[in-house]
């Protein structure tokens, strides 16, 4: 499982694949206040990115993986990191 709810934070771990998208959406519905922690995320399918855009939840930590760090964070300009 690359997505899990940990208190009020949804943690992304490893590769978040297209199969994980509905897991994320269900979690976002289940925990309307949850924020996103992408620190351990190594890769993300576009469908996962799209769900993040749609729900617009605050991101508390961005990925460290090269492409995600260099391009994804700036690309999702609306979801700037917020302090917990």
């Amino acid at each position: 499982m690359s997505l899990r709810l940990d208190g009020d934070v949804i943690r992304f771990e490893g590769q978040c694949r297209v199969e994980d998208t509905e897991t994320l959406v269900a979690l976002l519905h289940k925990a309307p206040e949850a924020k996103l922690d992408l620190a351990a995320c190594q890769g993300m399918h576009a469908a996962v990115v799209q769900a993040m855009l749609a729900f617009g939840r605050p991101v508390v930590a961005w990925p460290t993986e090269g492409f995600l760090k260099d391009h994804l964070a700036p690309a999702l300009a609306g979801l700037r990191p917020t302090k917990l």
Partner: peptide, 20 residues
């Protein structure tokens, strides 16, 4: 096709076929 849950209840939705 997968079953999932939304605030209004259980839903079914099509999902891209999984290579697994």
């Amino acid at each position: 096709m997968i079953v999932s849950r939304r605030s209004e209840g259980l839903v079914v939705l099509p999902a891209p076929s999984s290579a697994k």
